[in-house]
């Protein structure tokens, strides 16, 4: 088995990072979901690989479950939503693409800055990968901020979760398989509930644009 070198980790992180950046650029909802599936696939593979290395059956189960939930079921749910409500294109963003990219650059720069420097204590040789993971966290949150579409926001949250998992993975902070399954179950329920709500929003508001959710504010 090939050992997981910092270079490989960095490569994986770069891929994940890139997927979030592309989510920001993607115009079609199916594109965003595809990117999420790809992102999850990378994580599932990484988990699977290290579970093989640890030779732990439970971890294998956890990795497979991750694969099933994140790569198969969740995208399936989402594409169901898209088909049901005919949402080919994502609703607009607040910032245009160049501005979005500038913000992304700033956030990435922030996560590379000395404010996060000492994180290397966690994994001394994987500094770059860790910084990228942090950047991915921030950028995923920014996806939720920038997008008006409910679907993109949900993907943003899921991608945030992926970012955290990847950070834990890079820093070597995986928890037991049981906990992983627990978290995954949580995520799964979350997606189910959120999808139901997305449908309800569509039914009541006629669109999945969350900027129509303005009943509740201070008068």
């Amino acid at each position: 088995m090939i050992p997981i070198t910092p270079q490989i980790l960095f490569f994986l992180e770069t891929m994940l990072f890139a997927s979030v950046v592309f989510m920001h650029i993607a115009k079609k909802n199916s594109g965003v979901i595809f990117l999420y599936a790809a992102q999850s696939l990378i994580i599932a593979i990484a988990l699977f690989y290290s579970s093989l290395k640890e030779a732990s059956l439970l971890l294998v189960v956890a990795a497979v479950a991750t694969f099933l939930v994140k790569v198969i079921i969740v995208p399936y749910f989402f594409s169901g939503l898209i088909k049901k409500h005919r949402l080919q294109f994502s609703v607009s963003t607040y910032l245009n693409t160049p501005m979005t990219l500038i913000v992304l650059a700033l956030l990435t720069a922030f996560s590379y800055s000395h404010f996060f420097g000492p994180l290397t204590i966690l994994a001394p040789d994987k500094e770059n990968a860790l910084s990228l993971a942090i950047a991915m966290v921030l950028i995923s949150i920014f996806l939720i901020i920038n997008r008006k579409g409910a679907l993109s926001q949900m993907v943003g949250i899921l991608s945030l979760e992926n970012a955290i998992v990847s950070f834990a993975y890079v820093a070597g902070l995986e928890t037991t398989a049981g906990l992983q399954v627990g978290i995954l179950f949580d995520i799964f329920i979350w997606v189910v509930i959120a999808s139901v709500f997305a449908s309800m929003i569509y039914r009541h508001f006629g669109s999945l644009n969350v900027s129509v959710l303005k009943h509740l504010k201070e008068e």
Partner: peptide
């Protein structure tokens, strides 16, 4: 002060990111 509660969820998440940063 009430303008804080603008009803816009994107804004709300922005508060979180901003205070975090």
């Amino acid at each position: 002060m009430k303008r804080i509660q603008s009803g816009n969820i994107n804004m709300y998440v922005l508060y979180i990111l901003a205070i975090l940063i």
